[in-house]
C-alpha cells in the first residue's frame, strides 16, 4: 500500500522502570516526509518512547530503527540524523538567539560559513530575524519555541522529534507553529510530534493514540473519525478511552 521509505520503525518496543511499564510493546512505522502525531494523556508514555528513539534512554525490550540505524547499537549514528526539541524549553537563556544557534552549529561540527548560512536560512524560516540579538530569556515563549525548532533543524536532519512543542503557548502561536511544522515537512523531513491537544491531531498525516503505554489506535485522522463515527479527533479520543476502560 505504501511504497515510501520508512523513517522510523519499531517492533514490540518496551520500556520498564522497575515494575512500571511506561511503554508496552509498541510497533509502528513512520514514512519519509510524514507528519506523524503521537497522542495521549500526560503519562501515557509518549515522552519515554521519544527518548528511546532519540538515544536518551535504553529500551528494555523490542526493536527500533531510526533513519535505518539500530537504536540498540547505533545510537550515536542516529544522533547525526535527527533533530530533537524537548518537552520543556531547553536552550541557554543567557545567550542571545543567534548565539544559541551558533553554539549548536559548532556542536554539530558545521564549519563557520555553513553556520552563518544556516542561521540566515533558519531565522527566515521561523521568522526570528528581528530577535536575533535579543537575550533568549527575554523572548516570548512562542518565539523561544521557534528558536528551539531552528536549533533542532540546524544540521539539516532528515527526521525531527518534537516533544509537545506547543505546550504552554496561546492558540494563535500554536497555529503559527503548526504552519512551521508543515513547511518543515514540505522540505521532505519526517516530523514526529507528540501532543495532548486533539485539535492538533487533525493537522497530522497519521496519528498513533497511546494509552497506558500501549498504542490503542493508529491511522490517518480521517480514517479514525470514520471508523469510530465521530466528527472530531477529540471525540475519537474520548471514545477510545471509554472502550479501553471497559476492556480493563
Amino acid at each position: 500500500m505504501n511504497s515510501r521509505k520508512i523513517s522510523v520503525q519499531t517492533r514490540d518496543l518496551t520500556k520498564r522502570f522497575g515494575r512500571f511499564t511506561a511503554v508496552n510493546r509498541v510497533s509502528l512505522q513512520v514514512y519519509e516526509g510524514e507528519i506523524f502525531g503521537f497522542l495521549g494523556a500526560n503519562g501515557a508514555g509518549k515522552t519515554t518512547l521519544i527518548r528511546m528513539l532519540t538515544g536518551l534512554l535504553k529500551p528494555s525490550e523490542g526493536e527500533g530503527f531510526v533513519a535505518g540505524y539500530d537504536i540498540w547499537r547505533q545510537a550515536e549514528a542516529i544522533k547525526r540524523h535527527i533533530g530533537y526539541m524537548s518537552q520543556r524549553f531547553s536552550l541557554y537563556e543567557d545567550l542571545t538567539a543567534e548565539e544559541n544557534l551558533t553554539f549548536y552549529g559548532g556542536i554539530y561540527g558545521l564549519n563557520r560559513r555553513d553556520i552563518e548560512n544556516r542561521k540566515r536560512e533558519l531565522f527566515a524560516h521561523v521568522g526570528l530575524q528581528p530577535f536575533a540579538n535579543q537575550m533568549t530569556r527575554d523572548l516570548p515563549l512562542g518565539f523561544k519555541q521557534r528558536l528551539a525548532l531552528a536549533c533542532a533543524l540546524l544540521h539539516d536532519p532528515p527526521i525531527v522529534f518534537l516533544d509537545e512543542p506547543t505546550s504552554g503557548v496561546d492558540p494563535r502561536a500554536r497555529r503559527n507553529f503548526w504552519n512551521l511544522i508543515y513547511q518543515t515537512a514540505q522540505l521532505g523531513k519526517t516530523v514526529f510530534v507528540t501532543t495532548h491537544f486533539m485539535d492538533e491531531a487533525e493537522y497530522c498525516h497519521r496519528v498513533g493514540i497511546m494509552h497506558m503505554g500501549k498504542i490503542i489506535a493508529l491511522g490517518a485522522p480521517g480514517r479514525l473519525k470514520q471508523k469510530y463515527r465521530k466528527s472530531t479527533m477529540q471525540d475519537v479520543f474520548i471514545e477510545l478511552h471509554r472502550l479501553s476502560e471497559e476492556q480493563a
Binding site: G55, S86, S90, Y92, C151
Partner: peptide, 13 residues
C-alpha cells in the same frame, strides 16, 4: 536542571 544537558546528549557530541 535547565534541560540543556538532555539537548546536548541528543547531539553527536
Amino acid at each position: 536542571e535547565i534541560g540543556t544537558l538532555e539537548q546536548l546528549i541528543v547531539t553527536p557530541l
